[in-house]
Design a protein around this nucleic acid. Structure first.
Lengths: 208, 208
DNA sequence: GGCTCTAGCGGACTACAGTCCGTCTTATGA
DNA sequence: TCATAAGACGGACTGTAGTCCGCTAGAGCC
């Protein structure tokens, strides 16, 4: 379990907040790590949706209130656990080699992103489900969603300026919803088919 | 409250089921109508998400168990309430005048459907939210989703046979998810902007 | 080291979704 | 009209998310 999920990661879920970032107290930090570790362990062993927050609190040896104050709700905990994996992808997009990183044509970068995201999503569907559906509209409030959105909007603007880039970016992200992905996989769509199909759609849409 | 939501409408939520369709018992019918009426009344008065199923049962003067046996869960009740409105759209698609009904070019029919659906969605977002998100993957199990999907897949096949029509139809439906729609509206997207943007995307994607 | 005050702690509490099963109602057919 | 069984009824029960608030412990200051 990485230690990178500080309070700033949690606040990432909300719209930008100002204020003095007080240092994290020692007991708070200890408990935060315990909870994340416990959640990781129980999720792996029993499956995400079979683990209650009471169970996680018990396993971590903390009170239930502690879990909620720290992570807000079930979605928040899932987000914290996904943070690390998503940050890898974020880094590759911002500073990695093309086509994921800068330097390739916009369309290729869109395709590379969508494909990479599908891989990530497929590996952690259950966690994504929790982070997106545990509360209404959770997906769109998460910091990383907004990051992906800005990235795509920027590329759409370059590739096809006649489209409404802001809106189109949301539309491109919509098929990456965890519940749709899980449903498609259950209907027998192989991951490769989804990737190929997604690439074809993105190219048809953005190639002029 | 229409009386068209018989047991067959409820079974529409599940994959096709065979078996003898026994006639609905009189008390069952009476209670079903009472529950739908009560739900409609309370939802209108207090807002969908502020009404518990206990409250609906109480208002309808039936036991809680009755509500659940009849509708399965919260999503099922929402689906039953939406049924009527969706059936109108279904009828227009199957037998109405073009471009919604048969007779227009495939691309125009896709655009007409997406636009009409956005209107419907916008009018009943709260109910759609419930019907899609009350349980995991509920949206994709609903009978009407599969109907919309088949409709679009058919049109995609005609408009752009090189695409994976089955997959593409799901992708076209993804941006119509209730939670995304609500989030976009909250971010200040006007309904007209969403319609215009959606049309542009559909045409860019499907026009060869 | 001791004081103070703020942030954090934790578990009892509430509210709600969904289940279960003993009881009662309706449809049928003799 | 009555007997019977299929199926509906309903409310007590369970499990979980999320809240609340009196209590505790850490951090900075003297």
């Amino acid at each position: 379990m990485s230690d990178s999920n500080g309070p700033q990661s949690v606040s990432q879920r909300e719209l930008p907040v100002v204020g003095t970032p007080r240092p994290e107290r020692a007991d708070a930090r200890r408990n935060r790590l315990r909870v994340l570790e416990a959640a990781d362990r129980l999720f792996t062993e029993y499956g995400v949706k079979n683990v209650s927050l009471d169970a996680i609190a018990a396993e971590a040896g903390v009170g239930k209130g502690t879990v909620f104050r720290r992570f807000g709700d079930r979605a928040g905990l899932a987000v914290a656990l996904l943070d690390e994996r998503e940050q890898e992808l974020q880094a590759k997009i911002l500073t990695g080699p093309p086509p994921l990183g800068p330097g390739a044509p916009a369309v290729d970068r869109v395709v590379a992103f969508l494909t990479a995201y599908l891989d990530l999503l497929d590996r952690h569907v259950e966690l994504f489900m929790d982070s997106e559906n545990a509360s209404d509209g959770a997906r769109y409030r998460i910091g990383s969603y907004n990051l992906w959105h800005r990235h795509l909007a920027h590329l759409v603007e370059q590739a096809r300026p006649t489209l409404d880039a802001d809106h189109t970016a949301h539309v491109l992200l919509a098929p990456l919803a965890a519940d749709l992905h899980q449903s498609l996989r259950n209907r027998g769509f192989a991951l490769d088919r989804l990737k190929t199909g997604t690439e074809a759609i993105a190219r048809a849409l953005l190639t002029t």
